[in-house]
Amino acid sequence: MVERSPILNLISQLLLFLGLLSALLPFAIIAIAASHDLRTVNEVPMPLTPGPYFWDNIVEAWNRADLGPKIVNSIVFAAGVALGKVFIAALTAFSIVYFRYWGKMVVFWAIFITLMLPLEVRIVPTYAVAANVLSPYQALLDISGITWLVRQATGIEIALKWGLLNSYTGLILPLIATATGTFLYRQFFLTLPDELTEAARMDGAGAIRFFFDVLLPLSRTNMAALGTIMFVWAWNQYLWPLLVTTDAAHGTAVTQLKELIPQTNGTPDWHIAMAGTLIVMLPPLVVVIFMQRWFVRGLVAAEK
């Protein structure tokens, strides 16, 4: 605070409080609506005091949307994506920073350019690839004439097929590549002193040993930050799980929300819908609240 100015401070506090209120109000409305019964939730206006049916509604939403297995799916999916990104980004950055080979800069730029290709803009062909991950390679073999050669020589028709629809692999694998994560590690590795590498080598540590025993322990902060951001990001994914999991058993908690929205001419059971929303939005919120320092630091650092 720079100057004493009670009026200015009062106005600031008022505005801040207004901001706080608008940030918290939707949370409150969701929670309160989830605690009423069908009649009360549709009253005009809905009472702003919590009702007694909170637990009943949570149980009803849980059963109606089959949230138990769906939340397990979501946890596996989000944790898988987060761990995968944290690990693959570390590997790639290690290779880019600590090795010299032909084509290194090409790889670096190829990863960088993926920033311009968000999932949503390449969604239809990416779905086609997920239906058969090996289709790009099959196409390459076909175009290059290898398929034809092999058929002529041995009579065997090469038909590569590995479908990923309705599987954890299909949910996780296409989302693991990460440009931001790779840059985050690269920036960090570049700040480490060369003496560290020299000392490790003098002690007889090879590249792998150096990576696991020196670099990874040093990047614990990075991993926490990246892991937190990516867990929240993956949990909140909607379009990809919606497409890849056509079979209800593999759906995630977020895609399951659609089941809870009241139909236009059906019962307006918003209390159940809000209870379901509350369950689905809680895990990432809890992660952010407890890991807020890492979350904020990682976001700011990753975009530099």
């Binding site: 940030a23 949370f27 409305i29 977020v254 929205i261 819908a273 939005m281 952010v288 609240i289 979350f295």
Partner: peptide
């Protein structure tokens, strides 16, 4: 507190604001 809303999934927001 002002950071919290960013943790919420867009579709969950969609349902919540559809009601609100």
């Amino acid at each position: 507190v002002l950071v919290w809303p960013y943790a919420i999934a867009a579709p969950a927001l969609g349902v919540a604001f559809r009601f609100i």
